[in-house]
Amino acid sequence: MEIEVQFFGQLIDKTGKSSIQLNHTDNLVQLKTILFAEFPSLQDSKFVIAVNNKMATYETLIPEHAKIALMPPFSGG
C-alpha cells in the first residue's frame, strides 16, 4: 500500500533524495504534514503536487500505489 513521492529540481537538494516511499495516505493535507515533518525545508518551498501525472487540488484523493511528484518552479534561461 506504499506510495512513491518523487522530487524535482532544487527539492532534490533540499531533501537529499530524488524519491522516497511512504505508507499510503488518503489526501494531500495528510501527505504534506508527513513530508513537512520529515523535510522541514519543504515548508518554505513553492511546488505543485501531481498524483499519477495529474495536478492535485485540495479535493484530490490519493489512490493506492500512487506516484506523487513534487515539482518546483524553474526560472533559468
Binding site: 529540481g9 532544487q10 518554505d44 518551498s45 513553492k46 505543485v48 495536478m55 515539482m71 518546483p72 518552479p73 524553474f74 526560472s75 533559468g76 534561461g77
Partner: peptide, 19 residues
C-alpha cells in the same frame, strides 16, 4: 499561475549564474 499562483521568494530558486 494555475501551477504556481505566486512566485517563490527572491533567493528560493537558483539562477544559472548560481546553480
Amino acid at each position: 499561475r494555475d501551477l504556481f499562483p505566486v512566485p517563490p521568494k527572491g533567493d528560493e530558486v537558483l539562477s544559472c549564474a548560481d546553480g
